[in-house]
Design a protein around this nucleic acid. Structure first.
Lengths: 200, 200, 200, 200
DNA sequence: GATGAATGAGGGTTCATTCAT
DNA sequence: TATGAATGAACCCTCATTCAT
């Protein structure tokens, strides 16, 4: 009944790692990394502390893998290249921006955890690397999107859009539900579409 | 040379508090709040651990007062109302934006500490309040600036500019020196000035 | 040799707890609760400070469990119901009173620790509850004893005898070895036996 | 307006010491000696910590002087020899016993503080001496009382009455207001008076 | 005499990590 | 692989006491 072959074993291990990561992520996101102890995580998952160390070398590595996992999962929410081909530029923008705003609303705590870790290098240097490499990737994708659309200076535009969206995230975290997330979203979408139209 | 009157005593105490705050801020900014121990701060300042507690009830209070102090100091870098009167709208924008970018460059670690604390409520709730109240104030000031300039929908514009600048901060923290801070700065300044010109 | 089954594990843990309790009790009794540090206890037992916290949530809980343990152990020194059946009233009295005096002499420090904790609620409220519930139990048993013997107003008599014995304890603690413990013991025993004989 | 002569100075100092003692006693009695800090006392009295050390060498000495003070004050509540002369034996007993019960009720916390300190030598050895010497004195007075009344074996009777009253104190502290203090008081008074009458 | 900032030893407690089972 | 007791360093904080003013 239990897995036998090496492959099965590997799969089983991966599954368990993912389980742990999800649990850890849940706690890190709500309580913060430093306020979450290894014991907390073990309790959350109903496993032993020692067992955790069979899957992760130490707490910081667990954090890094968890952040990596979360970022990859979040990326998957975004559009695949196939989608891009079939959509008009306007729709692509709408989809990208709306996807991001959805992430912001639905995974608020996770977003704030990751960004707060990312921007303060001094706290946990290793995680900074993990996040920035993914960030770079995302910006590149955004830039490609602008290129496909035929924007002049797509890189600069990608950087600016990325910054604007992150900034909205910050303000949303700080001001909470009183922040006019929706109207800003509409405003952005309209702005980009119009500005494009206005171009010669 | 030593203080005698009650006033001098009070002033002396305030001075010392500020000294401690500066030291703590230095360490919090570079190592992070959770990685900075009370001992570290005491050592940094060459005073005893116990002495710290004559000035601050506990570590979290020290953080809050430090953050408050830093934010107020940073605000003072911004323009006073007098300045606003004498400057043309274009110049005011330039000054505000440039002031912010200067802050970003010169107090990188401090900026990242504060924002990372601000956005993740779960880590230290109390500091979230301290920061958000100041943030609200800043947004209001920005909004007033837009009103004075005669922008339609100044509030929305203030929120957007605030978000954009914060977002640039994030990206700067993540990408580091490779981030094209200057070209973006110019781009923003030009953009705002042009967009205004385009208005009827 | 080492425990394997869950039952053995449980038993092993209970054993260790008891070991810690005995060590803590030894120190609390001689030095006092507040003068005994967690470090002291760990040293006494040749274990680490941290290990203690695997068995007891905190120092106060350890005290409470220790007191509880001591009181229960002391109670067991008293007579079982079987004994009562086989003895004449005179002998029961003798046994009870002598048992108490023996306790007083042989566990002097422990007795004084517990009573001193019990009577001053302000010091450690939690332990006051622990002790008073046991005290209530003891008084009830004493009352039942008087009922069995046929004393009129057994409750009142139980309270009075309890008070007298506690008072003797106090005086013994204060006056030390010069206190005529033995003669008083005899006096009490005789007094109760005679008074009973005088009843119709 | 301020005291000049040495005598006045001395008197002034004594007054202040007494003030401090009363404040300290208040806190010791309610919170316990170990839970009361020098700062607490200074705050209670609105004086500085440093000032306290002008009057008492250290905390333990303050406790000893406070206990001494309290015991002497309590003793003064008892009957003077003059009173004894004018009263019948029955009335003297009544007065002594009632005085003690009044003390128990009105200065509950103080009584429990002192007795708890007295019986546990390990906690604060010095105070044990302070209290036991006063206790000895009180027992002697009680013994003299019995002698005056013509009791055979007055010493033994004094010890027993002392013990009984202390024991009642303990039980009162443990059981609180549910303890039938009044009925026991009446019972004791009647008991002693009757037993005396019953003597040939 | 009065003050309260400074001290520094020590307090209880937490926690990531190890390791024997 | 799973366990959880054991560790020990580090943490935040308290406090009696001192001393310059």
């Amino acid at each position: 009944m239990s897995p036998r072959t090496e492959k099965q074993l590997e799969a089983h291990k991966k599954e368990k790692k993912e389980k742990i990561i999800r649990g850890a992520l849940r706690l890190f996101a709500t309580k913060g990394y430093f306020n979450t102890s290894i014991s907390d995580i073990a309790n959350e998952l109903n496993i032993s502390k020692g067992s955790l160390y069979n899957y992760f070398d130490n707490k910081e590595r667990l954090l890094n893998e968890a952040v990596d996992f979360a970022l990859k999962e979040a990326s998957e929410l975004n559009l695949s290249e196939d989608d891009l081909k079939d959509l008009s530029p306007e729709k692509i923008f709408k989809a990208v921006v709306e996807g991001y705003f959805k992430l912001l609303e639905e995974k608020k705590e996770l977003w704030s955890l990751i960004v707060s870790l990312a921007i303060h290098v001094g706290s946990i240097p290793s995680v900074h690397k993990t996040i920035s490499s993914i960030y770079e990737e995302l910006t590149k994708q955004l830039s490609e999107l602008f290129t496909m659309i035929g924007h002049h200076d797509p890189e600069n535009e990608a950087v600016k859009l990325g910054a604007l969206m992150d900034g909205i995230g910050i303000q949303y975290m700080i001001f909470g539900e009183s922040y006019p997330l929706n109207s800003i979203k509409e405003n952005i979408i309209k702005g980009y579409i119009n500005s494009k139209k206005n171009l010669p």
